[in-house]
């Protein structure tokens, strides 16, 4: 009987842990979305899928490289300092191995680094590259993007909330309209 009680107690602890982990993920996410600073990252969506989480559009960010004057250790943690350009889109100002104290930054991974004399061109990968969508809408979103990109004036960008080095996708926009609304407006099927 005593063993059974211990087993049940252990079981309830596991139950709590199993529920607490996703709950904590939600709370943390909401905190970044609510209190983080908002940036717009120019992007190109394409449409792959994940067997567990369904269809998503993978975002390729145009602002994904920087030329540095000094060498950087890409095996260590990398911090990209973010600022807005004149048109209001995010750009990488600096990349360093030390965590910035004042500026807004993102923790990123290096894809590669190329040396050209004294210059080092570093290519980075952002942690937020997936925007999950309804399985029928993901491919439509890609088509919509392709159509809109033929028009030179249209803009596709991801709205990202950034806080303490972490970035979370809030939405993906085509011509300042949320991609879901854009698909509805253009009469794309569900």
């Amino acid at each position: 009987m005593k063993t059974k009680n211990i087993l049940l107690l252990a079981f309830f602890l596991v139950v709590i842990a199993q529920l607490a982990v996703p709950l904590r993920m939600i709370l943390h996410n909401n905190d970044v979305l609510k209190t983080g600073k908002i940036y717009k990252f120019k992007t190109e969506p394409i449409d792959p899928h994940d067997p567990f989480r369904g269809k998503f559009i993978r975002l390729y960010f145009k602002e994904n490289h920087l030329v540095l004057k000094r060498k950087i250790d890409i095996n260590k943690d990398l911090y990209a300092i973010i600022a807005n350009d004149k048109k209001g889109f995010a750009r990488i100002v600096k990349i360093s191995n030390t965590e910035p104290k004042t500026e807004e930054f993102l923790k990123v991974k290096a894809l590669s680094i190329n040396e050209y004399g004294n210059e080092h061109q570093i290519w980075i990968e952002f942690p937020f590259e997936r925007f999950y969508m309804n399985e029928y809408k993901a491919s439509e979103a890609e088509k919509a993007y392709n159509e809109s990109s033929r028009n030179q004036s249209s803009n596709t960008y991801a709205v990202i909330a950034i806080k303490n080095g972490e970035g979370i996708i809030k939405d993906v926009m085509i011509d300042d309209i949320s991609i879901n609304e854009y698909l509805q407006k253009n009469n794309k099927p569900l």
Binding site: M25, P127, Y132, G167
Partner: peptide, 18 residues
């Protein structure tokens, strides 16, 4: 089910891939 819940929460909230 645990894997499903974590994955789905990541999907609903577009959490960074890790």
């Amino acid at each position: 089910a645990v894997a499903a819940t974590i994955s789905l929460i990541a999907q609903v909230y577009n959490l960074p891939e890790n």
